[in-house]
Design a protein around this nucleic acid. Structure first.
Lengths: 143, 143
DNA sequence: AATGCAGTTGCAAATCGTTTGCAGAAAGAT
DNA sequence: ATCTTTCTGCAAACGATTTGCAACTGCATT
């Protein structure tokens, strides 16, 4: 349904289409999400937004994230039980490798793993709705 | 190191060995964890413990879970960003399939997936310390 | 069995991340 | 320009978890 191949998705159009208003603060947050190359949490998004629009509130960040999530525009992660971190849902599905030393998040995908997951769920009598695969590791000492 | 094949691990011995005291409340909590076939959260553990020992406090549940976790005696999960849920670490490693309708947690394991994960991490220049694979799905309509 | 002390507890208060009630502000249709 | 409805900021509420503290208790010692 949603065009998932575009580099920069037109969130505003989606929002308009969903009948929600395009407010100043939503524009700012959308912009930040589109530009974010990482996986910021609410506080970090709030900080970034504040530099553009001093009046934005943390509540609005949370409310907007929830809105965008239910619209399927972003994904919410909670690595290691930490605070929720967000990323735009524009690209292809992928999983995450978290660098335990730096906290960096590296994206990857494996069709073979996806296929195996489906097989397993199927064997157990289930249909997968979504899944979450997180690898936690550290850089291999380069010898 | 730790005997991972036993049905019922001797937590008490491990605790003693680690130089921590075997208190009345720890005995109760250990017992509950050993018996739990599910993945209870702190409040649920507290409830179960209360039926055995009326004086146990929720703080002690949390403190003990943290202690056992750092000892490697239990694992902590946070499915879908919910409250932490615990399980004893005695058995073999496994992943989880969460039934979205009932909340049931089904354990499974796949050596093939584990192997693929290692490969992927390796390709990215990483060594996996641990990982987390959660499948969220619903029972397949039996036709 | 009594003693001593560090480790442990229950309680209440604090903390963290997140949500919510409310009155005022501002989209967007008319 | 006006109206209706949605949205906002603020502060207070919230749920899960942690912590400070004074009282208590394992347990090693006499």
């Amino acid at each position: 349904m949603t065009d998932a191949t575009n580099r920069k998705p037109d969130y505003e159009r989606d929002l308009r289409r969903a009948g929600v208003r395009i407010t100043r603060q939503r524009k700012v947050l959308l912009e930040i999400l589109a530009e974010a190359g990482d996986h910021p949490d609410a506080m970090e998004i709030f900080r970034r937004a504040s530099t553009i629009d001093r009046t934005i509130s943390l509540s609005t960040v949370y409310r907007t994230m929830k809105l965008l999530e239910t619209m399927g525009a972003i994904h919410r992660h909670a690595f290691e039980g930490g605070p929720a971190r967000f990323e735009h849902a524009s690209g292809r599905h992928h999983d995450h490798l978290i660098d335990l030393d730096t906290g960096d998040v590296i994206e990857f995908r494996s069709d073979r793993i996806e296929r195996l997951q489906d097989e397993i769920a199927h064997e157990l009598g289930y249909e997968i709705v979504h899944h979450r695969l997180e690898l936690y590791g550290r850089k291999r000492r380069r010898r």
